[in-house]
Amino acid sequence: MPAPRQRRFPRSRTSVREARDFALQVLGDWGCTDRLDDIRLCVSELATNALLHGAPPGREYCVNLSLDGTVIRLEVRDTGDRRLTVQHPRPDPHPDECSGRGLLLARELADDFGVTEHVVGKTVWATFKTGPTPRQLAENEW
């Protein structure tokens, strides 16, 4: 099983793209090709949420990825004090609304989803069940 990988990102607009690229690089290194679109979208949504609502000015947020058998776990931790709630979509959203659905989307795409509160900040996490990687098949690790 590969070691978990993490990276910190600054509170800047370009960091969401960098977080997404980091996640895709890690998954590629691990040989994980299943569920890439779901994971990429969830990294974008969780990193954007941390950037806009979680990481106070001058602070960073952290993206962590781990692989346990055929389950990928994505975590985004911030140091903000804002409590997080996943709201249900409004029945009749305005067609021009561009925000407010990211966490709901992540919850729907992931196989499991949650928030862990810390003394300082929180970790939003999502898990994705995948098929065995080519390496796992070759080494019979699964």
Results as ranks from 00 to 15, higher is better:
A3S: 12
P4N: 11
P4D: 11
Q6H: 08
Q6I: 05
F9A: 03
R13G: 13
T14L: 04
T14E: 10
S15F: 01
R17P: 02
A19Y: 01
R20G: 07
D21T: 15
V26L: 01
L27Q: 10
D29P: 03
W30M: 07
G31Q: 10
G31W: 01
G31Y: 00
R35P: 03
L36G: 06
L36Y: 03
D37F: 02
D38G: 06
I39E: 08
S44D: 15
L52F: 02
L52G: 04
L52H: 13
H53G: 04
G54N: 08
G58R: 04
Y61W: 12
L65F: 01
L67T: 13
L67W: 01
D68H: 09
T70Q: 14
T70W: 01
T70V: 14
V71N: 05
V71F: 01
R73H: 05
E75D: 12
R77N: 08
D78Y: 01
T79A: 09
G80S: 05
G80D: 11
T85E: 09
Q87E: 14
Q87Y: 02
H88Q: 15
H88N: 14
P91I: 13
P91G: 06
D92T: 15
P93M: 10
P93Q: 07
H94N: 12
D96S: 10
S99F: 05
G100S: 13
G100W: 03
L104H: 11
A106C: 13
R107W: 01
R107E: 13
A110H: 04
D111I: 09
D111R: 11
F113P: 07
T116F: 00
H118A: 07
V120C: 03
T123L: 05
T127R: 07
F128D: 07
G131T: 15
G131C: 09
P132A: 14
T133F: 03
Q136L: 02
N140C: 11
W142E: 10
